[in-house]
Design a protein around this nucleic acid. Sequence first.
DNA 1: GCCGCTAAATGTATACTGCACTTAGATGTA
DNA 2: TACATCTAAGTGCAGTATACATTTAGCGGC
Lengths: 106, 106
Amino acid sequence: MSRVCALLVLLRERPSHGYELAERLSSIGIDARLGQSMYRLLHDIERQGLAQSTWDLSQSGGPPRRIYTISEAGEKFLAEATPELVRQRDALDAVLARFGHRSAAG
Amino acid sequence: MSRVCALLVLLRERPSHGYELAERLSSIGIDARLGQSMYRLLHDIERQGLAQSTWDLSQSGGPPRRIYTISEAGEKFLAEATPELVRQRDALDAVLARFGHRSAAG
DNA sequence: GCCGCTAAATGTATACTGCACTTAGATGTA
DNA sequence: TACATCTAAGTGCAGTATACATTTAGCGGC
């Protein structure tokens, strides 16, 4: 679920295609291995109506790209999922804190 | 993996049994639904040598409890898993920050 | 005997993930 | 022409994780 949200957050910033999303994700520190599962995840996201895709045949060089754009439902999903993400982050913080690891909140 | 770590962190504080671990987890905000998967997870942890268990037949009232104690290997596992947990926490933070959500670090 | 609480365990179905592999357009080069 | 390389998307499969429901069982109270 947090991976779906990660993708939606990026799509919320701007429409993007799978290959680029993989790069953007790894640049913000999210496991690059997600790359391989990316396309399947994007298909799921579209099937659930959280985003729409169109083929971009216009760019020069390389094969066509499938550009994903977040939908209203995607925005809504993201907003509703936020408390759960916060909970997950706080749970990780709690575990790390109990193990004596200083959190970012110091 | 983070769930295994959550359990190990609690066991590191003191030996505990499944039912109690479920309560302790939900008290620090970790999904109570973990409760149902708890026993299987604890079996896995023991099978991997990260903890040992003994039956506690002494307590008055109620059925016997299986008390888990963290092992050396468990401590080591936890120490080695910490960077990954930190990475996961930071990834969640990054996603939340991009969605405009203030992190605990403010 | 029956109910409710504690405690552990199992059964089953589905979702997630990782890893490897395949397809295919565009470009460069020997 | 043949071949290699980069970009981009997609598929197959095996293993793991997760959720949800159900089962077994000791003990105490009514």
